Amino acid sequence: MALFTSPCPVNVREQKWIEESLAWLRTAFGEPRAVITDLADDDVVGRLCQLMDVDPKTITVELYGDSAEDDLARAAGLTVRSRGAAGHYRRENGRPVIAIDRTLTSTRLVATVAHELGHVRLDGRYDGDDQEPLTDLLTVHFGLGVFSANACFDFSQDQRRRQVRRLGYLTEPMYGYALACHAHSRGERRPAWAGQLDVNPRAYLKRGLRHLRRT
């Protein structure tokens, strides 16, 4: 019988957490949203607030960060590894404040802002120890998982240096399976947006969809 099964791209513990967490998010925030793959850079915060049902007038957005040290390291041909926080969330005098690294661009910017807005949505609703990974999973529920999955791991290398960048709390296999569950719940057997995923998340998505169809 093993010949007719398709292995899940994540382990049993991760599979259980993803499935149960997505079910909770569905109960808390309604039906999973259609996946978005294109977002203009001119008003990322405003557009994401709209997509995630956050009133922009109720939050404060701060920018921080300086890329000068990384630039010096790259100029010297050194490896640059970044696991530092690309964003922060806090409450100040009862008002949500999201702080975003000003050096972020494109996919990483969208993923970071979506994650921090996820904190706004979860604040007061959930206080479990897994709030950070759940906030990443929330971006999948609101249709922004392609950005989060593509931003979670990035590796580049040339003759002088290499750069490894990680973002968020979920792995590529976890994003792949979460997106598979998302598509499955929406009745998308072959989601058109899968082509916008990077190679690894796309492969895990396909494995996840095969697993869900056969089990």
Rank of each mutant, 00 (worst) to 15 (best):
102 R>E: 15
183 A>G: 01
9 P>A: 03
98 I>L: 07
106 S>P: 00
107 T>R: 13
101 D>K: 01
182 H>F: 04
171 T>H: 01
83 R>G: 13
98 I>C: 03
52 M>V: 06
32 P>Y: 06
116 E>H: 14
125 R>M: 04
215 T>Q: 03
175 Y>K: 09
200 N>E: 08
46 G>M: 02
45 V>Q: 05
175 Y>T: 06
61 V>D: 06
109 L>P: 07
112 T>L: 05
43 D>V: 12
37 T>Y: 14
210 R>N: 02
95 R>P: 02
201 P>Y: 10
67 S>F: 12
29 F>N: 03
86 A>S: 05
48 L>T: 07
134 L>Q: 03
51 L>F: 11
131 Q>R: 12
157 Q>G: 02
100 I>H: 11
83 R>S: 14
27 T>K: 09
199 V>E: 14
168 G>I: 13
34 A>N: 14
46 G>L: 02
34 A>L: 12
208 G>E: 01
144 L>G: 04
47 R>W: 08
62 E>Y: 10
8 C>S: 05
204 Y>H: 15
24 W>L: 04
100 I>A: 08
97 V>E: 09
119 H>A: 04
95 R>M: 11
215 T>R: 08
116 E>A: 13
96 P>E: 06
17 W>N: 01
176 G>P: 06
30 G>D: 10
186 R>S: 02
157 Q>I: 12
88 H>T: 00
142 F>C: 11
153 F>V: 03
37 T>L: 15
54 V>E: 03
110 V>C: 13
59 I>N: 01
90 R>W: 08
105 T>Y: 08
80 V>R: 15
173 P>E: 01
15 Q>T: 02
44 V>I: 15
127 D>A: 07
8 C>K: 00
89 Y>S: 01
65 G>N: 07
215 T>E: 04
161 R>L: 12
47 R>P: 04
62 E>H: 08
63 L>S: 10
83 R>Q: 15
211 H>V: 02
74 R>E: 15
64 Y>N: 09
152 C>R: 07
96 P>R: 06
151 A>R: 11
116 E>V: 07
108 R>M: 08
170 L>T: 11
118 G>E: 01
166 R>K: 15
96 P>M: 05
71 D>V: 10
122 L>C: 03
145 G>N: 10
87 G>W: 11
135 T>C: 11
47 R>Q: 15
17 W>C: 04
161 R>F: 12
19 E>D: 05
127 D>I: 00
49 C>E: 11
87 G>N: 08
146 V>I: 14
69 E>L: 05
42 D>T: 04
23 A>Q: 09
32 P>L: 05
208 G>P: 02
146 V>Y: 10
86 A>T: 00
78 L>G: 04
32 P>R: 05
7 P>G: 00
171 T>D: 02
53 D>A: 08
194 A>H: 07
157 Q>K: 15
161 R>H: 13
18 I>V: 10
197 L>K: 11
149 A>E: 11
92 E>W: 07
50 Q>K: 13
18 I>W: 00
95 R>T: 10
30 G>M: 09
164 V>I: 14
3 L>W: 10
133 P>M: 13
182 H>M: 09
126 Y>R: 02
180 A>T: 01
197 L>S: 09
114 A>E: 10
174 M>N: 05
55 D>N: 15
51 L>N: 05
48 L>F: 09
29 F>M: 03
127 D>T: 02
56 P>S: 03
85 A>K: 08
24 W>T: 02
20 E>S: 08
175 Y>M: 07
198 D>T: 02
40 A>H: 10
